[in-house]
């Protein structure tokens, strides 16, 4: 547990199931995340880890069970979904920046249209965020004109601009060249120390060991093992986990 973690639950998942046609992706996930908690989710590809965090802001619909985010239950009620999306920021593997808008406008769009900020206020906040990300000088360029690491930091700033309570990271460094991974991880580390609740799907085990409060290991749609990083890496209980750790740490 880090110094920011509280005992207030902010995300409660109860027996969450999800199918893609006949394929059972999530087979009853039950877990609770506390305010300020940093959870790293890992597992082989196809294990359902990405699908799981995408159900939390309803980019994927779960088909059984309940998910409650900050006291609001996720249902088909559009108002609830929009409320939750304002509280949950998301960072994607492929950045998904809006290519037709400058980096600054990528960030100010949400605050102006959803939070109804004035253009001046939104730009002020956006520039402050870019400063925090260390890329204030890239504000007026287009996403295609900056490096991958810089794009991902713009994407993080875009999510933060909505002042979310929770940040979801879906393999944020997997599409990056090796020398750019650290600049994104630095920003995420800084964010973690600021007390943000974070759910991070990643293969960066060094980051998990250093920053996470809890590491969850997904395989075939279930949580095989979850533990504090020290226990998880040094004393894994399940054979499947041991295999995964030995394979990921080998290279």
């Amino acid at each position: 547990m880090n110094e920011n973690t509280t005992n207030d639950p902010i995300i409660i998942c109860e027996d969450v199931h999800k199918w893609f046609d006949d394929f059972h992706v999530l087979k009853g996930i039950t877990t609770t995340f506390k305010k300020g908690e940093r959870a790293v989710i890992c597992g082989p590809s196809g294990s359902g880890k990405s699908t799981f965090i995408r159900t939390i802001n309803r980019l994927e619909e779960h088909q059984r069970g309940t998910i409650i985010v900050d006291g609001i239950e996720l249902s088909n009620d559009l108002r609830n979904i929009n409320l939750i999306r304002q509280e949950v920021g998301m960072v994607f593997q492929q950045f998904n920046l809006f290519p037709h808008l400058s980096n600054l406008k990528n960030i100010t769009l949400g605050p102006m249209k959803v939070r109804k900020l004035s253009k001046r206020k939104a730009e002020e906040e956006a520039l402050a965020l870019l400063e925090r990300m260390g890329i204030a000088d890239q504000a007026y360029k287009y996403p295609s004109e900056v490096s991958g690491g810089q794009q991902q930091r713009v994407a993080i700033a875009r999510a933060l601009a909505m002042e979310p309570k929770i940040m979801l990271f879906d393999e944020p460094t997997s599409a990056l060249d090796p020398e750019m991974i650290s600049e994104v991880l630095d920003v995420m580390r800084e964010l973690a120390h600021s007390g943000m609740t974070m759910l991070v799907v990643t293969h960066e085990m060094g980051f998990a060991r250093e920053v996470a409060d809890r590491v969850m290991f997904f395989d075939e749609g279930v949580v095989v093992e979850e533990a504090a990083p020290a226990d998880f890496f040094d004393n894994p209980q399940h054979d499947r986990t041991k295999l995964f750790i030995s394979q990921t740490l080998q290279h």
């Binding site: 998904n96 809006f98 959803v114 999510a159």
Partner: peptide, 14 residues
Amino acid sequence: PRGQHEAAQAVGLN
């Protein structure tokens, strides 16, 4: 790409 729709939704746009 689908990611554009998803990013727009994730930012809270209707």
